[in-house]
Simulated assay, not measured.
Amino acid sequence: MKTTAILFGLVAPQVLAYPGMGRALDQIKSRRDYTLQSRSTELLGDLKTTKDKDLTSSGSTIKSVLEGGSAIADGSTYKPSGDLASDTCKKSTLCVWYNIVQDLKATFTDSNGCTDLARGAIRQGFHDAAAWDKNSAYGGADGSLLLSDEMSRVDNLGLEDIAAQTKDWYNQYKGYGISMADLIQTAAMTATVSCPGGPRIKSFVGRKDDSRAAPTGLLPFQYQNADYLVDLFAAKTFTSNDLVALVGAHTSSKQKFVDTSRTNAPQDTTPNIWDTKFYSETIAGDNKTILIFHSDKSISSYSETQAQFKAFAGSNGKSLWSPAFAQAFFRMSFLGVNNLNNLTEITQVLPLSQ
């Protein structure tokens, strides 16, 4: 089974350009006046214009988290009264997704912790959603990664196994009215909490699919410097601290294409567990024990990100990182989604944190 890096470790270091880079460079040059705060509170999609009196329960919850509230779910769970074949279950969004998540969880865990397909699912969630910024007319968490030719892009090397598995799941369950966009993001949320120590993040469904290939040049690469990445993510509504939190997903990452002589080298020494060793071990810099991406090392020492990186590496780093990652990943899952007020919460069907 192939293993790959989750976020930045996408291609070999010699690849120095990609389609759309010129557009991205031109755009970020105008963003240096972006105010960096500890956490983004910028609203997304239809919530930017929906009045409070018109908010649904889901819209209210999503808005609260986007504005800085906690994205970590409580321990509430859901158990269906019937199986998926029953008419009652078919008509219940929670029941349908409960059955789907049970399949996902079984694939994402083994006796060692989270599996290679779990790593792939987390990265897949990023790659479908993050091909978007505030200047994009379309793109984001819309399923286009697997509904268009995006998988042929160099950005997405290494996602082949999880893409094939996700398509199998989609073909199995699409008759129940699910979208590919929701399946990709729910798989990413399920994979995160399936890793021992991973947060249980509030989850919603109802995203609309789009088969148009997402804009190019909007995903990060492992050779990029921190200042570029800060601007790239600012255009997606993330602060520099959000970026530091998101890159911590490399705690469960293994790379395949960044250094082909070290295939399956992890980015920290405990890739089956969701912990903060990635931060401390990146700072320590032992590039023989683990494979440290240039982008990660740059973020660890850059003036706007160094302090947050060190905080996550500290003795109480996990208690700081978990809520920060949950909030940033929650935001990521809604990039480009314009019907947030009409989504349905399915958090109750997610596995409990281990």
Rank of each mutant, 00 (worst) to 15 (best):
D74C: 10
D54E: 12
G139L: 07
I162P: 11
H294S: 15
M332Y: 12
A234L: 13
A24V: 05
G248V: 04
Q124N: 10
D149V: 02
T49F: 06
V96G: 03
S319K: 12
K174H: 04
L47H: 00
A307G: 07
S300R: 10
I292L: 13
I162G: 05
D128A: 00
V349H: 09
N342R: 09
N272E: 14
R123E: 05
G9E: 06
R331G: 06
S179V: 00
A249S: 13
S136W: 02
A137P: 09
S322A: 14
L117N: 08
T216V: 06
V15N: 13
K174R: 10
A17M: 04
G177F: 03
S333T: 09
L219T: 01
T239H: 04
T109Y: 02
W321R: 12
T276P: 09
A71L: 05
A181D: 09
G69I: 01
V96S: 06
E42Q: 08
L350R: 07
S300V: 01
R123G: 15
L117A: 08
A129G: 01
G9W: 05
A121F: 05
T4W: 09
A188T: 03
P215F: 00
D142H: 02
G82H: 15
P80S: 07
A129D: 02
L44R: 04
P80M: 06
Y170G: 04
G314Q: 06
D74N: 15
Q102A: 07
W274H: 14
W274V: 04
H250T: 02
D83L: 05
R153H: 09
D116T: 12
Q222S: 14
L43E: 07
V349A: 10
A24M: 14
I201N: 03
A73N: 04
P199V: 00
S81D: 15
S253P: 01
Q165T: 04
P215C: 01
L183V: 03
D296R: 10
C195M: 03
L340K: 03
N112M: 11
F221E: 10
D83I: 05
